[in-house]
Design a protein around this nucleic acid. Structure first.
Lengths: 214, 214
DNA sequence: TAGATTGTTAATCGATTAACAATC
DNA sequence: TAGATTGTTAATCGATTAACAATC
């Protein structure tokens, strides 16, 4: 399979969800401009992304919806299912566990970790909560390669290093500070504080712009 | 104030948090490469961002930390405080409310909304939960210009349109589908499903790379 | 056929990076 | 002074956009 960019992978994830939600007959087609309109991109962008996963359409019928879903799934999911480890069973951590709870068979949170002894050994949303120092053992035994960090900022770096030592290859980081890991580890940051402050900035800016208009 | 890009605003938000966490003497300086190392960017990037908010440093002492925090705050926060409205008081919504609860006096969630009558009129994390149809009235009376969407995907578009009708200027969207709003409205998407699927993809890819190595 | 869409190449755009004189 | 950093301009890079022949 060809090498694709970070952004393309993200758009493919969105395309799949949009296509799955269509609920039209399997044989029906969809044009690139239709998918572009749904996903908020351009039709050229859509065609390029779909080409990257080996999909081709026809000028008369566009792309086959069922075939697209299958191709994107084959590209994103691979052959075997993947489990993720979540570290930090606070309010946010529990919400994330619920959010991803039993969504997809190919990708789910299979183990949670916390340093708080009161949370250990409880089952939250069908997922066992372990002691933090059991991470290497559990990650190895369950072949976990994905880590999710939902601990406070000051603990994020320590947890990141523990995840890396436990054999994790990619991290979804919710802590509001960047973590430093080896280049071989993929990190995706979700910095909600940054996002809210950006929104606040542009809300003020747009409001000022409108106020100036005659 | 000069016009800055979306990304610069995000980085400034991060710089401020990093600088606030330093806890060094107010008179002490910081070099661009130090801030770059903390934030995961380059020193040239840092200098360009700081120039955008009118900060200048000296070759001998770098940038004054206190002055930087003040300049970035002046740029991001503006003169008056802003309140945000959160729509969708589910697991994720409540976690977000806790997360941003009483953080900053300049920016906080001041009202929550849900269509579920059992949630209405309760106070969650010091924040009153209103009926969804009260959004226009509450937003107008409290001059709310920021909206946060934490409802399920299928309700996101309806809620987005209600927010726009209520005078909101910028939206933080947690729903896993893009929302369609007028160009004048700023939208920041946090698509956690996309992020997790990206992480899963690269975890698999990186694992495969390592496996191939001799 | 006519008309719209696909696949692919060339052009554009913006952001990042490199370079370097000015500064402390 | 010498050495490192700043501020600013030029070069590079990558991604997006435009263009257009091939296709149905």
């Amino acid at each position: 399979m060809r090498l694709v960019s970070d952004k393309t992978v993200g758009r493919l994830s969105l395309y799949r969800r949009l296509l799955s939600g269509l609920r039209q007959s399997p044989a029906q087609g969809i044009y690139s401009h239709e998918l572009a309109s749904l996903s908020g991109t351009t039709s050229a962008q859509v065609r390029r992304d779909l080409m990257a996963v080996g999909c081709s359409g026809s000028p008369s019928h566009g792309y086959d919806v069922g075939q697209l879903i299958e191709a994107i799934s084959g590209f994103l999911d691979g052959s075997e299912s993947q489990g993720a480890a979540l570290v930090g069973v606070g309010n946010l951590g529990r919400a994330i566990m619920t959010y991803f709870g039993g969504r997809r068979p190919n990708l789910s949170i299979v183990a949670a970790f916390d340093k708080d002894p009161y949370k250990v050994d409880r089952v939250i949303h069908g997922c066992r909560c372990h002691r933090l120092d059991e991470l290497p053992r559990v990650a190895a035994s369950q072949q976990i390669r994905i880590g999710i960090i939902t601990v406070p900022a000051e603990e994020a770096q320590t947890v990141a290093e523990l995840l890396v030592r436990s054999g994790i290859r990619a991290i979804l980081n919710f802590a509001p500070l960047p973590i430093r890991v080896p280049d071989a580890i993929y990190v995706e940051d979700i910095d909600m504080t940054m996002s809210l402050e950006k929104v606040a900035y542009f809300a003020r800016q747009r409001a000022a712009e409108t106020a100036v208009r005659p």
